[in-house]
Design a protein around this nucleic acid. Structure first.
Lengths: 331, 331
DNA sequence: CCACTAACACAAACCGATTTGCGAAGGAGC
DNA sequence: GCTCCTTCGCAAATCGGTTTGTGTTAGTGG
């Protein structure tokens, strides 16, 4: 095998010491132009590329970030991930990805593993870990950006979407259409439940009727939405509209309505959340609330890179991203 | 700040030498049970977790893999990525992700960066790099699995989908429906073009008419499909069916047909490729060819892990995954 | 009771880079 | 001609682990 070249090989080839090669490449100390040329030439000839492992061990910087999300196969995340990757790529970072399925134990394991790998920063789409718990795991100094995190003491930078704005718009819209009875299909129990809470607040403010029985918890999937709606819609009295914690659930709800011969939106209005690409493609087209995935990823990149240069002492910042109702056909 | 504990701290706490701690944790040499207990206790108390950087530098194994894909935001890849991540996670691997946009230069850069980071293996969804070129970049010994790679001398393990089977089925199906004039919207020029080639082969075998003008190259996106179809369908004579290199393009083609008031499937049949989740949700539902994303990811995981234990000497293996036509409404 | 062998712990080398202290060579100023 | 100051290259320490060679202690057999 061709052993990958080490700095000593380059030094020998150029007739200098490893130190000088390092200086020539990093520019941390001046090197005579002629010498530098010889070194660069040798680097070229030997196709030398420094071992990042060794460099990282010495410098204590890995140029690697972590992206911790519930499930990359959930269509909301890829768009966000792409924007993040693009954003940090320019700064020379690569990104490790871990899926947690929203499980607190999975989140803990992923965090620990990332810390052991000495990543320079973490972006975490958190469902089940508070920023305080998170700090207990990763220590106080590691740059972390949490997306849509749990409430409580904030101990990281934060990117949140103003869910309540879009949800409020949606509820008001339904109210204006004469809807009085409302249901909500949320994600699994213990997922943070911002959206449920925001929904309840908005519904309450307008005096709408939300029976306890019309609130369901289910996985963030199409199948989850289907199952929840099948059981929810089975009661003798059912809501005139169902709002959902994400679009996949909403699509599942529409599946259920179709299966039960319930017309959308005449008999049942359905509103999703996230505005994934598919939302505009289903029939009827899904009325939903935008959750700017790509903007979220880009914002995470920005915040994280900033934090990395600023260090842990600068005050935590929170960025709030807008959401809004997108009217289509399902409501 | 709380400095993360080092092995020396544990050794001191347990009253032994770092060597003994290492042996106790790795089991590479026997350690007295009493001593081991003291050490494990100290590890626990100090919450010690070995620095993977240092370990990797010494052992020359990083427990890290690379996933190199054109675009994680393209809905085909997340499902595959998820299966891969799950498959290797159990073996203790984390995964670095890089997007290339199908660009040869991007692929080169990603490969080099991964090599510099000393990953233990690479999964590459390659569009523009031959396995021979790839070996030139990563060296002969690094485990690599290529998905749907370029032809030529094979110098890596390979996972390919039997595109020609599904495409053949589809062409035969159209032929049986009386279709004689066929178009194909492929991905960007220089993307490997297996699918185009397989399509042409099948169409030729049945004596179908494929005008040069009915073959287009466009990005693998909905917008790309739209643009290509708008121009393709503008000619005074147009094909009775258009097949596409992936579902996103097909959806874009349907957008264009709608915009031009061309009925699907009566006036124009459209067939996609990949069977992404959205395909069943659009209107009309997209007839397409399955490309088992999740199975692909799982197979990559399997092959890569195998290769890592086998080493570079074992002969390269190729796995062929099935594809087949899924009849829906668009053709 | 002595030789011999497990069992086990420690010191030191090593992975491949970066970084610091130091000294040698060459040029400028007086 | 001598000192002083740059300029620039080398040796050695360091990051935090793992691995090997060596030595000590306790236990076994004759």
């Amino acid at each position: 095998m061709v052993p990958s070249r080490r700095i000593a090989d380059v030094a020998a080839e150029a007739g200098v010491s490893p130190t000088t090669v390092s200086h020539a490449l990093s520019g941390r100390r001046p090197v005579a132009p002629a010498t530098r040329a010889r070194i660069l030439n040798a680097v070229e000839r030997l196709d030398y590329r420094p071992d990042r492992l060794a460099t990282s061990l010495r410098t204590q910087r890995t140029q690697t970030l972590a992206l911790i999300i519930p499930d990359i196969a959930n269509p909301y995340y890829p768009a966000s991930a792409r924007a993040l990757l693009d954003g940090v790529n320019d700064a020379g970072f690569m990104t490790l990805i871990a899926n947690t399925d929203g499980d607190p134990e999975g989140e803990r394991a992923a965090l620990q593993e990332m810390v052991a790998r000495r990543v320079d920063g973490i972006v975490m789409h958190s469902l089940a870990t508070s920023t305080a718990d998170l700090r207990r795991i990763v220590g106080p100094d590691l740059p972390v950006v949490v997306v849509g995190g749990l409430s409580g003491l904030i101990a990281t930078d934060l990117v949140v979407t103003a869910d309540s704005v879009g949800l409020g718009e949606a509820v008001k819209y339904l109210h204006g259409n004469g809807v009085r009875d409302l249901g909500f299909v949320d994600g699994p129990e213990g997922n943070g439940m911002y959206r449920l809470v925001a929904f309840l607040g908005a519904a309450h403010a307008l005096g709408l009727n939300v029976q306890d029985d019309w609130i369901r918890h289910t996985p963030f999937t199409r199948e989850g939405g289907f199952a929840a709606a099948m059981s929810l819609l089975h009661g003798d009295r059912r809501p005139a509209a169902i709002m959902c914690a994400n679009d996949l659930i909403a699509i599942g709800v529409m599946d259920a309505a179709r299966a039960l011969n319930i017309r959308i939106p005449e008999d049942l209005a359905v509103i999703g959340f996230d505005d994934i690409e598919t939302a505009a493609l289903v029939t009827p087209q899904l009325t939903t609330i935008t959750n700017p995935a790509s903007l979220t990823g880009a914002t995470c990149a920005e915040l994280l890179l900033e934090r990395i240069v600023l260090g842990a002492d600068a005050p935590y910042v929170t960025r709030v991203l807008p959401t809004s109702l997108v009217l289509r056909e399902s409501a």
